[in-house]
Structures are given as structure tokens and as C-alpha cells.
Amino acid sequence: MSDQEQNSAPTSGARRGVLAGAAAGLAGVMAGNARAQSTSQGSTDAPPLADPRKLYPHEPFPAQPQPWPGLASKMHPRPDHGEKSYKGSGKMAGRKALITGGDSGLGRATAIAFAREGADVAINYLPQEEEDAREVIALIRQAGRKAVALPGDIREEAFCQKLVADAVSQLGGLDALVNCAGRQHYHESILDLSTEDFDWTLKTNLYALFWITKAAIPHMPPGSSIVNTASSNAYNPGEIILDYALTKAGIANFTKGLAKQILPKGIRVNAVAPGPFWTALQVCGGQPMSAVEKYGTTVPMGRPGQPAEIAPIYVHLATTESSYVTGQIFGITGGTGAPG
């Protein structure tokens, strides 16, 4: 274009184009100003800034012993699993997930989050936990997603194989596996830890992880994700939960090794390592009642975490947002800085 052409007066069609462009630009500026104003005034779509130490309940908690396996619905205060707060954005639309321990605690929060992100979800739990599980199934369905209830004891290899087969059959596939079920029961001394209890913990936390993962991998296409649940005890073991801590260290190690092994299949494997979280695991023998009453005071946050606060990490690790992340352990420990 010559200098003369650049400086010549526009035709009527060109003038209309200039005016339309100016109008569009003005509209964009106005929209931007509106967004800025909305942000400065506090958007209704996002929670306001708040001191994280004061967001949720802290000690003293009432003594509240429950028989194993414990129900979240009978805890005081009831844990927050995101029932009212979690808002999805379609990050897992069309995905198909199996979550163990999906009735309460971290598994329940993850099931709610996955469903609200668009995934169909199958949950496993013990038959004694049916009361809590029914609530989760209802919440998944309220999100407009398919919910599959698969009760049973994962200490049996045959059941673990059936669990995966039933999940694949009823969901129509499987591309996300969250191993969240776990057993924790304190013993003040190793001399009080029976072989039966030791076996119970290892079968629930390690053997089931192995059996379920082994059964699931052949069904999982490239792009799938496995998320395991370790613990800060894998790195700083508590002296009264030796068997539990041992299994959590094993889960962390298993996660890192398996991630290398199955990356050629296009499947990622990561783990979350929580610190103190307010779940039914703690009130049914996971800790002595004296520890439950002041639970969470040993970390800088000064309170236990709520399951709703950890669910977004499980979502992130299950989605393609974390496509370059595998073999990692994510510590959510209330300020201790562990694990690395």
C-alpha cells in the first residue's frame, strides 16, 4: 500500500467498517471495565479472601468414639466434603472413575468433585458404611452423572478383581482410578500390635492397592490417571501407628516405581500425602480420643484439614491439566513442608 492510499479518505463501506470496529472496541473496553469493577467489588463466583487458619473448626473437638469403620454422618462437627461448596467447570466431562473409600473422607470429597467436573463415578465402600455411601450416590446423581455403588471388602483379591470388572461394565470403561480406602488403628506399643491387626492394615492399604491397580490397568486407555493416597506418615511416621505408616511409605514408593513402568502405556500415576484431616478414620480407632480432642494442633495451620480442601488436588492429578506430572507425591500437610 502506497503512502497516498494510506492517507486517502475511506469509502462509505470502509467508514462503516471503521465505525463497527470502534463500536466493538468500545464494547470490549466497557466489558473489561465491568470485569475489573466486579473483581474490585468481590465476585460472587469465587469465595472471598479469608485467613486459612480460621476457615474451618479447630480444637477442642468433643470426644466421639465410633466402632470401626466409622461414619462421617455421625461426626461432630460433620466434615466438609464440598457438598455445598464445590463447583465444577467441566474438567472431567465424559470421564469414568473408580474411587475406593468413596463413602466418606477424602474419597467422598473426590467423588463429589469428580461428578461436578462431569465424570461418571463408581465408589467402593464397606457394607457397614452404606448410610454414608447413599448420600454420596445421591450427590453424584444430583450433579447429573452416573453413580455406581460397589460395596465390599477389598481385603479379598477376588473381590478386588470383581470390583474393577463391575466398574468397567457399569461405567462403560475406566480412565481414572483413585485408591483412597485405608485402615488406621493405633497401638501404643508394638507389643500390643497383633499379627491379625498388622495383616488387616497391610491387606487394606497395600494388597488391595496392588490387586485393584493390576486389574484396572488393562482397561485404561492412554491419557488415564491413577491417584493413590499416601500420608505425611510415609515421611514422618507416628510412633503409635507403625503398621499404617509402613503402608503409606510403601504406597509412596509403589507410586514412583509404577509411574515409570506404565508411562509407555500413556498412563500417569501420582499420589497425595495428607497431613491431619478431619475424617471418620480418626474417630474409630485411628487416634486415641485425647488426640482427637486436639486434632490438628501439631501442624502450623493449627487445625485439621477438611476433605473439601484436598479434593481439588485429586481433580488436578486426574485431568489433562497435569499431563506432564507423573511419579510425584503431593503433600497437603497444613504447613509442615513435607513431603518433598
Rank of each mutant, 00 (worst) to 15 (best):
E5H: 06
A31I: 01
P52R: 07
Q287I: 05
F61L: 13
E188C: 06
F277P: 13
T195P: 10
W68D: 12
P127L: 04
S232G: 11
C284A: 15
I313T: 15
G21M: 10
N228F: 03
G337F: 08
P77A: 03
N205Q: 09
A97R: 03
R145Q: 15
P300F: 02
L263I: 14
A23C: 10
L19D: 05
H187A: 13
A72I: 02
I310K: 01
L106M: 11
V283K: 14
K96A: 02
L126H: 05
N236S: 15
T319L: 07
T255G: 05
S232W: 12
E59Q: 09
I313Y: 01
Y86T: 05
I123A: 00
A273K: 03
P276R: 10
A133C: 03
D132G: 04
H316S: 06
L193T: 15
E135L: 12
P69M: 09
S104A: 14
P221C: 04
G286F: 11
I154M: 13
S2G: 13
G82M: 02
Q142N: 12
P304Q: 00
P222D: 07
N7L: 14
V148A: 13
T255R: 03
V299Y: 00
A245S: 14
G173T: 00
R141V: 00
H219Q: 02
W68K: 06
G302C: 04
Q161K: 15
A147E: 02
P48D: 12
G94H: 04
A22E: 01
M289N: 02
L98G: 02
P47Y: 05
K265P: 00
V136I: 10
G285F: 08
